[in-house]
Design a protein around this nucleic acid. Sequence first.
DNA 1: GACGTCACGGTTGAG
DNA 2: CTCTCAACCGTGACG
Length: 415
Amino acid sequence: TCAGGARPCAAARPGAGAGPRLGPPPSRRAGVAGRPPVRGPPVTGPSGPGPPAAEHTYGEVNQLGGVFVNGRPLPNAIRLRIVELAQLGIRPCDISRQLRVSHGCVSKILARYNETGSILPGAIGGSKPRVTTPNVVKHIRDYKQGDPGIFAWEIRDRLLADGVCDKYNVPSVSSISRILRNKIGSLSQPGPYDGGKQPPPQPALPYNHIYQYPYPSPMASPAAKMGGHPGAPVGAAHVSLPRSWPSAHSVTNILGIRTFVEQTGALAGTEGSAYPPKMEDWPSVNRTAFPPAQAVNGIDKAAMEGDIKYPQPAPGLSSVGGFLPACAYPPSNQHGVYGGPAGGYIPPGHPWQPQGTPLAHHGPGVAVHGGDLATAMAFKQPGREVVDRKPASPVGKSPDPLNTIHGLSIPASSS
DNA sequence: GACGTCACGGTTGAG
DNA sequence: CTCTCAACCGTGACG
């Protein structure tokens, strides 16, 4: 289904269920484009009283008055809150209104959550993992050295024939050509990577190693928490990694490089910048709105900060704490700027949630186990995405993953 | 009125 | 360095 956003689906869709839509009334399809959303002058907080910091946070304002960045995922805090509220029994339509997020989005996020257990957005951009791994390069080099006149397509065939690659990860002829041109230009010298050598990390990185979403680090090991949760393959519990290409075909797996990857993943969590600086460097984001990150693990700081683009209200606003009516948001956030950290609330237990890990509760104070919540939320069970996204969960880490996990520095004030 | 679905325009990042 | 492409995004509107 398309709900997940499967491309094919969309592509194949022009006719599919959308039949009737093919002739969208003029007014229709206005979608995002039709009605020039408030853009450009980035939605900065209400240009008046707005938070100074948010001078030019840009975004658009939806019909509900909420701010969003076209093409970009909602902040994890919001995503999380959507799930939380849903778990509190609040109807999606109400959640939509309260958070000022389109109901379609709420529906989508909840559906995904139900399906995968993850509140996190999928991996955006990028493409399949590199197929030109060190090992492949090495073979190409060997072939080339063995037969300087060999054609790229011949190399390709040989890679397949020799089992170096399979049809899923064999480099394209153009890629091979490029390799020949760029990396194997001078056959005399050993390539950048030597067979036995430990391959440089980068190439091995699975998809999106840079994808800085606050994906909880593997160590979050939701799996662990999930313990007996049905359908929660412990090992795979990683719902969060955005996209992982068919692990079975994963180059990294094939090459046995995964370990590194995993580690990297873990780091990512710690280093946590929610979004890549590039984009994330949105000006004016008031990062201070969030408690200093302790968190480290995935969503935490990252998650929260990740939402940088969205002006964040003071932490105090916590959302749920009081399931405030939309109007509860400070005027300054007029445009429904997404509220602050998702903390501050004590989510209801989750069905699948491992006993004893109530969402965010323990920990007094800061950061805390708020992570649990996130974790739990984020990893209900490794859904297909999950599985796909992350080959395996790292091991032996996180002494107390839960705590740090998303570190949703929830002002958990367990109170 | 609620909600699932999906076209749309947009962003992203590997190749 | 730029372009291409395919993935994902949230919105908004239909049904």
